[in-house]
């Protein structure tokens, strides 16, 4: 068993377990637009790892938010709705959006369901969840505290090994 941080898992291209490649790419793309830096630190690997853990060990913020496990369907359906709604509005894939198109789309999705967003949790809720996940992985680590000039002052250091790769 090798323990890796999400960023290391990303660097080493560790295969996903709960997400497929397209879902992971969408998570990274949208997550990074919401919280810049999230892709680099391994957002999709972080979510993938948490989704494949058993419920008691799943540390996603979704736990708090009155969504009962399993959580895979939450992300899968939201990502499908996201892709569909982007295509409906721009006739493009999410990865082809310009920065300002992406900004406009996120501004809509944080307030209401964009057109074509159906069979999924409400868009503002998905925005909130993905934003929180991205903040967790981008700003919730010892390295991130350091970069913000916040003393970490741990009683017990976190392992930061959210990836347990067999």
């Amino acid at each position: 068993m090798v323990n890796l941080t999400p960023a290391q898992a990303k660097e080493r291209k560790i295969p996903f377990q709960a997400l497929n490649k397209d879902q992971a790419a969408l998570i990274d793309h949208l997550g990074d637009a919401i919280v810049p830096g999230a892709k680099k630190v391994g957002l999709s690997h972080y979510i993938d790892h948490q989704l494949s853990a058993k419920h008691a060990d799943n540390l996603l913020i979704l736990r708090y938010l009155r969504v009962n496990p399993p959580f895979d369907g939450f992300y899968a359906s939201s990502l499908t709705a996201f892709e569909r709604a982007v295509t409906r509005k721009y006739n493009k894939n999410p990865s082809e959006l310009t920065e300002s198109e992406m900004t406009d789309f996120i501004t809509i999705m944080m307030q209401k369901n964009p057109e074509g967003w159906n069979d999924a949790p409400p868009a503002p809720f998905f925005y909130f969840v993905l934003r929180s996940d991205a903040i967790d992985v981008t700003y919730g680590t010892m390295a991130a505290f350091d970069s913000l000039d916040i003393p970490y002052m741990a009683h017990i250091d976190p392992t930061q090994t959210w990836e347990n790769i067999p």
């Binding site: 540390l59 913020i61 708090y64 919730g140 970490y152 002052m153 741990a154 017990i156 976190p158």
Partner: peptide, 11 residues
């Protein structure tokens, strides 16, 4: 088990 991390705290 009380690891100083807001992510681990969810456990």
């Amino acid at each position: 088990d009380l690891i100083s991390s807001q992510i681990n705290a969810r456990r």
